[in-house]
Amino acid sequence: MSCVLELKNIGFTYGKGTPFEKRAVDNVSLHIEQGEFIGVIGHTGSGKSTLMQMLNGLIRPTDGQVLLDGRDIWAEPKKIRQVRFKVGMVFQYPEYQLFEETVYKDIAFGAQNCGLQGDALDRAIRDAADFTGLPPALLDKSPFDLSGGEKRRAAIAGIIAMNPEVLVLDEPTAGLDPMGREVLLSQIVRYHKERHNTVLLVTHSMEDIARVADRIMVMNKGRLALFEPTREVFRKGDTLRGYGLQVPQITRIMQDLRRRGLDVPEGVLTVDEAFAALLPLLQKEGKLW
C-alpha cells in the first residue's frame, strides 16, 4: 500500500494576533494509506472540522505540511484547485448547496470543472447517482423538488462524480432517520469497496463508525489523541469518555459481561459479533434449542 495523505506537524491558529486567537489544531502528524476507511471522531470544538478543511487546502495550515501523494499541497499555491479535485469534501447538511436547474446538472457541476466532458461526464454522473441510490428518473427533476434525504444524496453524488482520490464526509447522516442513516452508510461502504478510494468519515455516531472504519482518528483539544485500528480505539472506553466520547452500547454490554467473568472476546463492535460470541456460551448451558 502507498501513503496517499501525510500530515507533518500541522497546526492552525484562528485569529492570530487578535484577542480571539485560538489554537484549533496543534501539531498533528499522521499517514493515511491508499484505500483506507478512516473514522474521525471528537467532540464539538475538538478541531476535527478544521483538520478536515486543511486536507484539501480550504484553509492553509499556520504550521507544518500537508502531503498528497508525497507532494506538499501548498508548494504551488496557484495550483491548489487541483488538490480540491483530488480530495473531495462533503460538508455538513450539503443539501443547502444545491443550486442547479436539474439534479443532473447539479451533479455535473464539479466533474465538469474537473475537465470531464461528453460520454465520460455522463457516465460519471450516472455512476455517482447510482452509488448514492438516486433513481435515474430523478435526474431531470429540479433538486428543490426532492425530499431531504434525496437532496442529501444528490449533493454527495456531485462530489463522487469528480472521482476524488480521497473522499471526506462531514457527518453525512446527521438528521436522517435510522433507516436513512443505514442506507446512506451502506452506500458509502459500497462506493469504498468498488472504487478502492480513501474515505474519511466524520461522525458523532459511535455505533455507525464501529461497524465500518478500518482505523479511527480521535481528536481532542486540537490534538490527535488516538489513531488506531477501530477495535483498539473502542477498547479504550475510559479514555474516550475522558474526551467526551462514548463507545457503542453493545461494546459496553460485552465489556461488562467480560468483567463479570464471562468468556466473551474484548472489543466487540457490532450486535452480530456479540450474537456470535454469546451463541456458543448459551448453547453450552443448554439455554437454546
Binding site: M179, G180, Q249, I253, V271, A274, W289
Partner: peptide, 21 residues
C-alpha cells in the same frame, strides 16, 4: 417501519429467536 431499537434490545431479540427464554 424504518426505525431502530437500542442495540441491547436487538441482541436479546436475536437470541430469543434461537430459543433463549
Amino acid at each position: 417501519h424504518r426505525l431502530d431499537v437500542p442495540q441491547s434490545a436487538e441482541l436479546i431479540h436475536k437470541l430469543r429467536g434461537c430459543g433463549l427464554q
